[in-house]
Design a protein around this nucleic acid. Structure first.
Lengths: 116, 116
DNA sequence: CAATACATGTGTCTTTTACATGTAGGTAGA
DNA sequence: TCTACCTACATGTAAAAGACACATGTATTG
């Protein structure tokens, strides 16, 4: 809700950017800014806040779900490249399972809605 | 992000209880407590906070999306029965459209995940 | 050399969700 | 009858998630 007159309908999946970036990292090691640009393609238009994204990445690293290294040699600003760990992969698997559940709940809802 | 060490995976749809209760009200007028018990069947998961539910109901009414009346005569505590308005129905339609979008985004994600 | 794009970050506020508690009528049994 | 429990509606507040604003620095391009 909560302030009256604002019944914005988005139907976003909570923290969807998390599994999305894990998936991108599964496909290949990437740095933050690139993830920022690639994420909307996965999430389908969800705008990702870059501040929060970098925080999530550091949090993931803190807990050993990704590792990072500074990319040297390339032109341009220094990049911190992230890579998925085995535990990160497991977390992604969990997300995939949970998302299958979500899809089913949405399906159920829509069928019930369409009966009316 | 969650506090470090707590990468809880739920894949909930934001404010899913809103369209869920609109759908229940589309099926028939109902009072709050009954919605509270019926909601988990629609959303597929427990966690519906009754405090928030009543707040949402009053908010919906404030904006003319539902109407309510106190049910008299019946045994037990007085019940406030809610009914969907035309505008409420429109909001539900919006939700249904948005949820179809969500389902598609999740599908896309899962296909991409399964390719790996 | 100014504007723009790339790249990584911090600080903080608002919104949304979760947890806790309060009030009160009704019901069934010791 | 009193007390334990269920129904029913409601408020208060903490925590989580997300949005907004801004800082810092490098390279590129017009």
């Amino acid at each position: 809700m909560v302030r009256p007159g604002h019944w914005g309908v988005r139907a976003r999946v909570e923290r969807f950017s998390e599994p999305a970036l894990l998936l991108l990292l599964l496909e290949r090691p990437t740095h933050g800014y690139e993830l920022l640009e690639a994420l909307p393609h996965v999430t389908g238009e969800a705008r990702v806040d870059m501040g929060n994204l970098y925080r999530v990445l550091r949090g993931l690293e803190e807990d050993g779900l990704v590792t990072s290294r500074w990319e040297a040699g390339e032109p341009g600003p220094a990049k911190r490249t992230y890579e998925l760990t085995v535990e990160g992969r497991r977390l992604l698997d969990e997300w995939a399972a949970a998302l299958r559940g979500s899809r089913e709940r949405i399906d159920t809802f829509l069928h019930r809605y369409e009966r009316r």
